[in-house]
Design a protein around this nucleic acid. Structure first.
Lengths: 252, 252
DNA sequence: ACAGGGTTTGTACGAATGTTCAATTTATTT
DNA sequence: AAATAAATTGAACATTCGTACAAACCCTGT
């Protein structure tokens, strides 16, 4: 019969590491519900600690958020290292697939692991609304990573401009992040595919490599149709369906 | 000298349409900061109306959120119509590009328009955290659209399974949505590319078409590298940098 | 002018939020 | 064992939140 082993601060200490518990709980809740939808009380309850302990260890809420990314900053170093280990030979046709493999591989493994799944989800979902704290996290931790990958892609695609490479990098990143936070594919495929199927990883890598090659063909005109003129019209107002509430709606 | 013309409720009414003003302000703020980060008071202030008027017209906050998507539901009908106008001929090599054009075109035009830019941004950013209200919006408005596009792709790619098609659809959607809410490409390209450049639209369509074709080649083995085994380790804890606050941090 | 319904507004309620503090307990060092 | 430091806790603080309400306002048709 094994005891409920919990992480310790030091090897011989018998006290549970409640600081780490708080970070874990915050990571999970922020990833699932979003930063502003999560209260410190919910984090404390999920971590099994009293409310005041959260503030004691991490201070204000936004610093707790920042601490999550600081905690995982080493994985970014690893991703940069994996990229450096790719031989950047513009002549080798496998250079681009290798870059993309270094791009998607570590992220998908992180998402599939029990340790990093919520951190990966958090990155995919919560860094869009650029405000004070998300912008700081983005610039500090992820801009250098993106720059390194764009530089590598630029070497593998000498005929493309940096603007083009930056665009396709964002396309690839979008495909990757949306796949990570995807919860619809099972429904949309009518049950034929499941979340986290490793077959999707191969498909994603092929999608990105093929997409980059197709978008940045050295020749002049690619395969797409001509772009039409922009248009958009705001639809007329229409009332929404009612719900149970004491609220008395205005008559139309 | 032109007067500050504002939308009217009816053609002959001289009163400004404050109900529409509220919806506009909510749309913009929700898109920029996220649902939970926006207060009803901020919406009222941005719309130039007293606080109580928001509740008078839209009731609870989540109904105001829902009303935005109800307001734009006609654009989804238009996207479905644009898809139906695509001749779904599996023999025609231009069928896939035409589907993708019907996929990205209307969205990018909406994003580029002054009327729909924030709605497009809202869709791209705010529907990830599936909870009560976002899940309802997703299933009601966007699942039918996704199903229609997946059906069309299935027709254009008879050799692929529905699971594969659902996956690449999600990849394409991710690329599109991330491009829509992108604010980094200017920074990452070192100023060489600007947001909303129509050249990116062509690039995106080519990326998606090429990506789908590369991922779903009829032959057996595609171009990607073999998938390595999963691994991930949670890094050891490291303290974060301090900030100005009355909070006294614990000594390490 | 009158009446009535839709519209507008100031205000206030209870609940929930982030944050802080003093006090207590536990661990470590002297 | 005594002293010091760290960890832990309950409670409370001032704000801010969503929501509701009643009174006032405006417009239209009688």
């Amino acid at each position: 019969m094994d005891m409920p082993i919990r992480p310790r601060k030091t090897a011989d200490a018998l006290r549970p590491d409640r600081k780490a518990d708080i970070l874990l709980a915050a990571e999970k809740l922020f990833a699932q519900r979003g930063y502003h939808a999560v209260t410190i009380r919910q984090i404390a309850e999920a971590a099994g600690v009293p409310l005041a302990l959260v503030g004691y260890y991490y201070g204000p809420k936004h610093e707790l958020f920042h601490a999550i990314f600081e905690h995982w900053s080493s994985t970014i170093e690893e991703r940069l290292l994996a990229l450096k280990n790719v031989g950047l030979d513009p002549q080798d046709a496998n250079t681009l697939p290798r870059i993309i493999d270094a791009f998607v591989g570590p992220v998908l493994r992180l998402r599939a692991s029990s340790e990093g799944e919520y951190y990966a989800l958090l990155v995919a979902r919560e860094l869009y609304h650029l405000q004070d704290e998300t912008d700081r996290v983005m610039r500090t931790y992820f801009d250098p990573l993106a720059m390194a990958f764009i530089d590598a892609l630029q070497l593998a695609l000498p005929h493309a401009t940096r603007a083009q490479v930056a665009w396709v990098y964002q396309f690839a990143l979008g495909a990757l992040l949306h796949h990570i936070s995807d919860t619809r594919v099972e429904r949309l495929s009518k049950g034929e595919s499941k979340q986290g199927d490793p077959a999707a990883a191969v498909l994603l890598a092929d999608f990105i490599v093929g997409g980059i090659r197709a978008a940045l063909v050295p020749g002049p005109v690619p395969v797409s149709l001509p772009v039409p003129l922009p248009f958009a019209s705001r639809p007329e107002s229409a009332p929404s369906s009612p719900k149970l509430s004491t609220h008395r709606r205005p008559k139309p």
